[in-house]
Amino acid sequence: MSQVAVQTKNEAVEKNRAFKRIISKFGPLIGLILLTAVLTILSPKFLTINNVMNIARQSSINALLAIGMLLPILTAGIDLSVGSLLALSIMMMGIVTVNMGMHPLLGILVCLSVGAAFGWLNGILLTKLRLPHPFISTLGTMNIARGIALIVTGAAPIAGFPYMIQFLGREFVGPIPVSFLLVIVVYVFFHIFLTRTQTGRYIYAIGGNPEAARLSGINIDRVLIIVYTISGFMAGLAGLVMVGRVNSAFPLAGLSYELDAIAAVIIGGASFLGGVGTVWGTLIGALIIAVLRNGLNLLNVSADFQMTVIGAVIIAAVFVDVLRQRKSKKA
């Protein structure tokens, strides 16, 4: 076969691959746009500034949890404890600031560090105690944290937080909620972290092939501990935003939020097998869930039915992903 022929064949293959890359990169975004279009047609109130800002605000807690969740999932792990950590973090913050009357900054510090500390514990259980899978270690801490959250105040809620604590979840800059601005800042930070730092790349490497990563000199334990600590920290941060939105902390806060966070990450195109997934995909995943919930609320669709729809979307999103991968593997 002649040289020229080989080249044109390669070009065709290249073009095809470029097309697939675009689809795989923007698949979730296309989904979000289609969804928005459908809901705009169905409900006149949907595409109004007021409602878009509602979506931004409503998505922020899940968006913060989801970006934390992305890291364990990238390493082929999972963090089931984030919902409970959120509750424990805000209960502790409530005790420090409301019940004990200490400075709000100290409360914020407590909130974030309780999350991070439990996240660190998740990492230690996984790497040093060698529990077989993070599903188990985080299932354990999920129950432990929820239990403590209920015990500390005898299950009573805490209300009346100082303004400084409420700021993130409550305030607006112009029409834009501060909580969503926080989401944007956090996501930019995570994007840089995952794509432009050594640790970020190691996270992908560990998820893609742990043995290859280890033999390439990567300290897997260290990276995993960082991953779970960050995930826990994000639970604390999401809690802070939640307290701002509702001016109260209650021990059943964040119940089953880990599942919404996982859903956002998966809808955003990350692979449960690890090594594949992006920050922007996760943001779109979180937005898709928020847009669906909001849109269905506007259409007065019952909550039971909303669950069904979101379940279907998760399956559909992953199914599209599976089709895509099956294709790219055959080629």
């Binding site: 109130k45 939105r245 509702v246 609320n297 909550a303 039971d304």
Partner: peptide, 19 residues
């Protein structure tokens, strides 16, 4: 869906108010 979905209720109130 259930009485434990506290934030969902808050979101629903928001979404009703926006209409």
């Amino acid at each position: 869906n259930s009485e434990s979905e506290v934030m969902q209720q808050v979101n629903m109130i928001e979404d009703q108010l926006s209409q």
